[in-house]
Amino acid sequence: MASIQAFHKIRDVHENDKLAAQKTYQQAVKNFEEIAEQLYLGLKKKEETEEQLHEKITGGTLTAHHFAQMQHYITRLDQQIMQLQPEVNQARNYMEKCRRKMTEAHVEVKKFDKLIDRKLKQWQDSQKEIEKKQMDELSLQQFLLERNR
């Protein structure tokens, strides 16, 4: 039974590792979503600005100064987008790494759960076997006592 308690302690350590990995993964997901949302908003702003520019060009209501301003704004958005794309990829890779660690930690906990279950079953089986032997011994002693009377 002492070995089962040791396995429980080891399982608890792995469970704590799993919980820490889950927390890290959740933070990584949150970070990825924040950066990805920034990228999405930048792309959306660029698309909207390009549509406005196109509408003003086709409508003939665009001045050269306004055209230059919009082009400069689109260029700045492009720079922001180009800067955010590697950050998004890095955040995605980190998130995947955290997910793999969380999965590995979960597997470790499951391994110890199964190991504990097996050890407990073995212990219960051995207890039943001991009980059977004791019952056989008692029966034999009672038989011998009855016979000697």
Rank of each mutant, 00 (worst) to 15 (best):
L115A: 13
L39Y: 03
I35L: 12
T58W: 08
T75H: 11
K133Y: 12
K46I: 03
Q134S: 06
V13L: 06
L53R: 08
E51H: 13
H8Q: 15
L140W: 03
K44W: 00
A28I: 00
Q38R: 08
E33F: 00
F7P: 03
L144E: 10
V29E: 13
V109M: 02
K111G: 00
K9R: 12
K119A: 14
Q90W: 01
H8Y: 10
H65Y: 14
G60S: 01
E146R: 04
L140S: 11
A2M: 14
I57K: 15
H8T: 09
D12V: 02
T103D: 13
H8P: 00
K128R: 10
E96N: 07
T75F: 04
Q52P: 01
Q134Y: 09
E33C: 04
D78L: 04
Q122W: 08
A64N: 06
R76Y: 06
E34F: 13
L120C: 06
K97T: 15
I130F: 03
K111H: 05
H66D: 14
K132A: 11
D78R: 11
F7R: 09
L145W: 05
E108W: 03
M95Q: 15
T75Q: 10
D136M: 13
E47M: 03
M95W: 04
S126A: 06
A28T: 02
E129C: 07
E104G: 02
Q22E: 15
W123C: 11
E47L: 08
R100Q: 11
Q26T: 01
G60E: 00
A21D: 02
T24M: 09
E51N: 15
R149A: 03
